[in-house]
Nucleic acid binder design. Sequence first.
DNA 1: GATATTTGACCAGC
DNA 2: GCTGGTCAAATATC
Length: 307
Amino acid sequence: MGTISPEKICTDRKRAIEELIKDRARDTAAQLQDLFGKPTGDLRGPEELVVKLLTSFTVSLSVLTSSCRDCEVCQIPVTTQVGSPSSGESSKRPAAKDRRGCYKRRSTSEIRVEVSTASEDGHGWRKYGQKDILNAQFPRCYFRCTHKHDQGCQATKQVQRIQEAPHMYRTTYFGHHTCRSHPLNSPSQNPLLHSDPLEPYLLHFEPKTITTEKKHNHHLYPSCPSSVPSVKKECGEETVQSNNLSGDLPVVEPIVWPELMPLEYSSSGYSTASTSTSHGFDMDLLLESGDFGSDFPYDENDFPLAS
DNA sequence: GATATTTGACCAGC
DNA sequence: GCTGGTCAAATATC
């Protein structure tokens, strides 16, 4: 009988990782968790099972990714160098009358994927596009760093609502911030920027302290609230950082958008619906190291910002 | 008036 | 040829 080649093993492992990472098992568990949305301190029955399930995913991912870390096949997190630092979008523009669409498409840059329920990452993002994606129910929004021009920051991100879990958003970060728009951008100051590549795979459960001061973003910027609050602020003055993934970080202002939690939140606070407690699990799956946050590519009526 | 968002157009890659 | 990513003019908001 033939033996299974290492490549085959790695391929299978990769598939397993993808199954865990992508929309299926993890999001299903997340949906279950969301259905329960119970406080952290009193887990019983189904709620506890959900937490255990999510924890199992975390452990599985860690095992799978650690067992073959150096294999190319298993390199789910794509962290390759860009061919040239001069690969700016304007480096290869033809002298056309209309430069629209004339750009240098990013080849492969540092990619980080995050799935979270809400909030932002403290960076200033400017939306530069939106596309309807084939076979996707929701459009994909494209953001670039606000400091792209003034500081040459090449960080971009894509935000897309997860079809199977509409209350969650998949944020894909490309590149990293070279601007100084946020103190947490520094690994030494950001406990999330672990040196261990496995750390980002952890599912983060955190007690979310709900405040009622979440109006300003949503009301001022109903379309893409998370992309905006910090836009007009100077570097280092970011104060809104709701997607706090670590208990070490101060919860400045947890943001829960009404459309995300329609049964729980009202303008005056939270009702006593099933997930209305002042504490709840905020599951964030960091699939790659580094940044964190997501966006809300929907308007105040919860309609996709499609054309 | 300045800045951000929307949206159609264009191009790269498959 | 199709799809996704980006640009930039038009528009909206502050």
